[in-house]
Design a protein around this nucleic acid. Structure first.
Lengths: 336, 336
DNA sequence: TGCTAATATGGAAACGGTTCCACAATTTTT
DNA sequence: AAAAATTGTGGAACCGTTTCCATATTAGCA
């Protein structure tokens, strides 16, 4: 038999449907006696409200869309964990959309901005095109960006330029002058702006310390441990190799460590390595890194989004999260 | 202004709402002329159907629930990737539920079995209690299990006992007799049965080859690289240490490799190590392993679930996926 | 030419909730 | 004692689709 409806409950309890609805939603103005009659009927019929009907009449879905690029990057997964955990404590549900390519992104974003399926949109690390942004601006669902920037939207972020400077300055403070930077492709299809900003921070720190910028010390390749290992080997085989390498992500830094091991170069005695992100493996590899609050950025993003859903606001909210230099065992004073 | 509805479209195109609906759903019996009038009106009003209303009247939500335990395990994330990818090619949406603890699992499962929010349920690696199972049996949404077993439900699986045997037999074939097994806790709160079965496979292979089982060679600890490293150090410091270690997961095997490195034990010359799963890092670490189709198990799970949603069936479907011994650089013939 | 079948269209009813208005009963105020 | 405010309740109308029935038109055929 099909599930009981609110009308069945009303009939069984000998009350009107309005009254049942009031009991369900904890409205005042229901007498104790009536309430218990209704609750009895609900229990007896094993009634649970149909969410879809509720959504249609109330206009709220209690679902939020979360868009992420690659589940293959540990840092994105860590953010997703934060999102998921925060959502588990709320009464919202997480609808996951992938955005592994420009076309997948555009399809999903179009879908999101048109259908009334969700109450809010959380975009993690997916670069927005102008069309995407305009589509979202026409939606009335609030949007929060995490780890990306667009002046028209709320966001949770860290100061990436600052982070790049912190990493570089740490190496400079240890006496290094020949400092290389390994990064993702800085001009790919998908523009991950964060990496560019870290690069700017790297350059700025060098300038501030009057260290000339050697463009041969900046190498880029698609993101990945393996790719970074190859870049590192290239750097370390140069005539005048760097004494320190700043890798744009921990994943890449681990590639650098592997390159050093394979080339029998001792870290940190002969080479200092610093990463960026603070993923779990960094701790395990004893990697010095710039730690950003990955998990917490997810949590904050969700909290901001939910607060905007429940108390709409025209203002743009920006939450800046702290960066922390985490000194571990892969950086050391330059050997004289 | 609020979004256009099907009635607005009908009015603008001078047709009935039924006709608009037929155009939207590609029903036959709409004249070309009428169709184009309707399409024009749709375009002009920038109309998109309200999904929630569609869901209510059609009884389909085009959403499936996916439950996963820990996003901290690479193997689960890899399965999720498969799920996500398969879903991106369908017209279903993914609602992600966490199950990091017994209570979180029970809350989510109760929710899932009661609300009409989803069309199907995919449970990945989350052990089911009897209550959970009964609740799902009362739901009319189809359920597919991946990487877990319950006789009453459809599933996508690998033969874990066989996998445990394959790993162990490989080591035996290489001449090893002193073979240790490192695993998760075999009796935790959450019963991850797979690990027990791999253990049984390990024991069976030893028996089949008439190698006595030394219980000191089986050590367990909560899952993790670090925990496994400690176990491995314990094994390798024994009076009569094993010459080969079978780790129940690649993550644990990597911990073993790290232990060996820290103890200056050469792999594979002095110690053979085999893992299980076939995660990305295994390839990168050149780890011999039993590879199971993680990504594809997600894909298959989704495909099975969708086919059951669209063509309900009383039969229980079981899809067994292949295991493959992937010999890389961490196992070798026992040094005589 | 008339009869049946196929094609085409309109719109009421249904999906299962929430909301609001009308009204009743009780309490408080003047 | 009458008026006003508070508390409590029923149920029609509505949210925006799909579905089905009624009906109109056209085509096919003997």
């Amino acid at each position: 038999m099909s599930p009981a409806t609110i009308r069945d409950v009303a009939e069984k309890a000998n009350v009107g449907i309005g009254t049942v609805s009031r009991v369900l939603n904890h409205h005042p103005y229901v007498s104790a006696e009536t309430r218990s009659k209704v609750l009895d009927a609900i229990k007896e019929l094993n009634y649970t409200p149909n969410l879809i009907a509720k959504q249609l009449s109330s206009g709220r879905t209690h679902a939020i869309a979360v868009t992420l690029p690659f589940l293959t990057y540990p840092s994105f997964v860590e953010r997703l964990r934060g999102v998921q955990t925060a959502l588990a404590d709320s009464n919202y549900v997480l609808i996951l959309y992938g955005a592994e390519s420009v076309s997948q992104r555009d399809v999903n974003f179009l879908d999101l901005s048109q259908t009334a399926r969700i109450d809010g949109i959380l975009i993690v690390s997916v670069p927005l095109s102008d069309e995407n942004a305009n589509a979202f601006l026409e939606t009335n669902a609030p949007v929060v960006l995490v780890d990306i920037f667009n002046p028209k939207f709320n966001r949770v972020f860290v100061d990436e330029v600052e982070g790049g400077m912190m990493a570089t300055q740490h190496l400079i403070d240890l006496g290094h002058r020949k400092i290389a930077f390994i990064s993702d492709l800085l001009n790919p299809d998908f523009q991950f702006l964060a990496m560019r900003e870290r690069y700017h921070g790297y350059q700025k720190a060098l300038k501030d310390n009057e260290i000339p910028i050697n463009s041969k010390y900046h190498l880029e390749a698609p993101h990945g441990q393996y790719e970074a290992k190859i870049l590192a080997k290239k750097l370390l085989s140069m005539e005048d190799p760097p004494t320190a390498i700043f890798a744009g992500s921990d994943t890449q830094a681990i590639g650098v460590l592997n390159a050093a091991r394979e080339m029998d170069i001792k870290v940190p005695e002969e080479l200092s390595v610093i990463g960026y992100d603070g993923i779990r493996d960094a701790e395990y590899m004893n990697l010095t890194t710039i730690e950003q609050p990955l998990f917490d950025s997810g949590v904050e993003g969700v909290n901001l989004l939910i607060s905007l859903i429940e108390r709409p606001s025209q203002n743009i909210h920006e939450i800046r999260m702290p960066l922390k230099l985490h000194v571990r065992g892969t950086t050391a004073l330059l050997n004289p």
